[in-house]
């Protein structure tokens, strides 16, 4: 049976797993954006936060993904459902690129532009919303892009804790020693990562000022 036949015969299941995959990646990136960008802004504003925040995000990255899923299992409410757990873990992994890029984007704004704005009597929030964030936007989107592409790949591991997604096929294929089944999970995941990469890359270019 060719891969093409496999897709035709199992198209409802393929679609379902793809949607599950998208669901996990989508929520985790959304949460990571909502947490990571404000944290990046805070670290840029108060250098004292730099080490603890970037340090913790860095440490999270070094935890092997399978272990992180395992650690989170006993958590109340979250541990009750595998997809919640997967979303939390993926969010934690996505934080570092978001915090770091927001921080770098803001810090990368030309010093003289900030000095001129401050000297003219802009308030901190005016500087942030009208100058720093618009000028950092391209770098921040680049962070979202890295986080999304990584997250699409990582989410395949979530199948190991029963959260579903395209990892199902990969784990099944490995167990069956069947390359076609592995590819049935790997190819849609790769396509998803590529589309996210191209789409967000386009957005990044459009929003990069200067």
């Amino acid at each position: 049976m060719s891969l093409w036949h496999f897709f035709l015969e199992n198209h409802t299941e393929v679609l379902e797993l793809t949607l599950e995959h998208l669901w996990m990646v989508g929520w985790s990136i959304l949460f990571a954006v909502l947490i990571g960008i404000p944290l990046g802004i805070l670290t840029a504003r108060w250098p004292i936060l730099n080490k603890p925040v970037l340090g913790s995000a860095n440490i999270i990255q070094t935890i092997p993904s399978l272990a992180l899923f395992g650690f989170l299992l006993p958590a109340p409410w979250i541990g009750a459902r595998a997809d919640r757990l997967a979303i939390l873990a993926l969010t934690m992994y996505a934080l570092l690129p978001l915090i770091r890029n927001t921080y770098a984007g803001i810090k990368g704004v030309d010093r003289s532009v900030i000095e001129a704005g401050r000297g003219m009597g802009m308030t901190d929030s005016q500087l942030l919303w009208q100058v720093e964030l618009p000028l950092a936007l391209g770098v921040i989107i680049a962070g979202v892009r890295i986080a999304t592409v990584t997250s699409v790949g990582l989410a395949t591991i979530a199948a190991a804790i029963g959260a579903g997604g395209l990892g199902e096929y990969i784990f099944r294929g490995v167990a069956m020693v069947n390359n076609q089944v592995i590819l049935a999970g790997a190819i849609p995941a790769a396509v998803m990562a590529l589309l996210a990469d191209v789409g967000l890359g386009w957005l990044e270019k459009r929003l990069s000022r200067v």
Binding site: S112, V113, E115, A116, G117, G119, M120, G121, P134
Partner: peptide
């Protein structure tokens, strides 16, 4: 401090125009 700065014009060597 905001009032003070808006009462005083400020010009620097690098100009610091907002590029966007």
């Amino acid at each position: 401090v905001i009032r003070l700065r808006r009462t005083i014009g400020y010009v620097i060597q690098d100009v610091g125009l907002f590029p966007h």
